[in-house]
């Protein structure tokens, strides 16, 4: 009877010992990925911001609040089409950044299509990749860092300039009790395309530069606090400035009109919601990557020890009986 029990324990020990590395090095790389059908919303606010009053004499004015609503929507059908060509798991996010003034009216809207490898978050290029209708070819990351983010600089895509530049690793931080990495990117004053939708009556944003000589300039200092396990930002802050120069801004001091200037932060309820979501996903990733393999390895060793002990005890008894 003891012999049979020790054999069962031995089988279980091998099962656990084999499962531990298989989970960590075979299953985890295949299972840890961004789901293609993800839907996520985020609300950010810039309090006491400066906003160009398009309807009231084209002068910058202080406003209580500008709201930015950002939605990410995974397009599963488009993912399948791209995957067929790319031969790997691809996520296609259709996103909309919708900016709302204090009166509730649209200030600007920027749609994007972002394609990336579901496992590594490396960009994938296919027809349809765009920012505000302009075809782009992203380098680096956008919105999310890779799983198990490293404490180093990354290339980060800025949708306004349509270019990628380094986002610097600043150091570790503690955010709501979670150990996170802080990254910072500064985009210097850069001429950017006019948004396709602007709240200016009678002016076509597509031809405003050619017809009036007005150009749009932008600078940002962005900071992200990123959970290194999931690579998901848990907090973000941006100091954004936009100016119109020349043309309709020619009469302003230095020929510059502030279109927007503000410190953008996540609305507190969304900050908590995002943190809770990331914390939950962090536990799932760690379970597959660390907790389960380590637990199974320990269980395998314990079961093997128990099997050997039972076997040795059984043999001693047999020796005693035969003697």
């Amino acid at each position: 009877m003891r012999r049979r029990a020790s054999l069962v324990l031995l089988a279980l020990a091998v099962f656990c010992a084999a499962l531990a590395p298989l989970l960590r090095w075979y299953a985890y790389p295949r299972l840890a990925k961004i789901p293609p059908g993800q839907y996520q919303e985020m609300v950010l606010e810039a309090k006491d911001a400066t906003l160009l009053d398009y309807a009231g004499g084209m002068q910058p004015k202080k406003v209580d609040k500008v709201t930015i609503v950002q939605t990410l929507k995974g397009n599963v059908e488009a993912s399948r089409e791209v995957e067929a060509d790319a031969g790997k798991d691809v996520v296609v996010w259709d996103t909309l950044t919708y900016i709302i003034g204090p009166d509730g009216k649209m200030v600007s809207r920027i749609p994007e299509r972002y394609l990336f490898d579901a496992h590594t978050q490396d960009p994938v290029h296919a027809t349809g990749e765009m920012v505000d209708g302009d075809p782009v070819k992203r380098e680096g990351i956008e919105f999310k860092w890779p799983f198990f983010t490293e404490p180093r600089d990354y290339l980060y895509f800025d949708a306004q300039t349509r270019t990628s530049s380094p986002i610097h690793y600043v150091g570790p931080r503690t955010y709501r009790g979670m150990e996170v990495y802080c990254f910072e990117q500064t985009v210097p004053w850069t001429k950017v395309p006019m948004p396709k939708k602007m709240p200016i009556e009678g002016i076509d944003p597509a031809t405003i530069e050619q017809t009036t000589g007005t150009t749009l300039w932008y600078t940002v200092k962005a900071r992200f606090w990123v959970d290194p396990v999931t690579g998901a930002p848990v907090n973000a802050e941006q100091d954004i400035q936009q100016e119109m120069r020349g043309g309709i801004a020619a009469g302003a001091p230095d020929g510059r009109l502030t279109a927007f200037a503000g410190h953008v932060t996540i609305r507190p309820d969304y900050a908590k919601y995002t943190f809770d979501l990331v914390a939950s996903n962090r536990t799932k990733v760690l379970a597959l990557h660390t907790y389960a393999p380590a637990g199974l390895a320990a269980a395998g060793l314990a079961l093997l020890a128990a099997a050997l002990w039972l076997e040795a005890r059984g043999r001693r008894r047999e020796d005693g009986v035969s003697a």
């Binding site: 789901p35 293609p36 609503v69 995974g74 709302i100």
Partner: peptide, 19 residues
Amino acid sequence: APEGKTSPKPLLTTAPAAP
């Protein structure tokens, strides 16, 4: 992992009252 479906929810043009 299950592939799931494209969410029927729209891309938002108003700020939700809560997440």
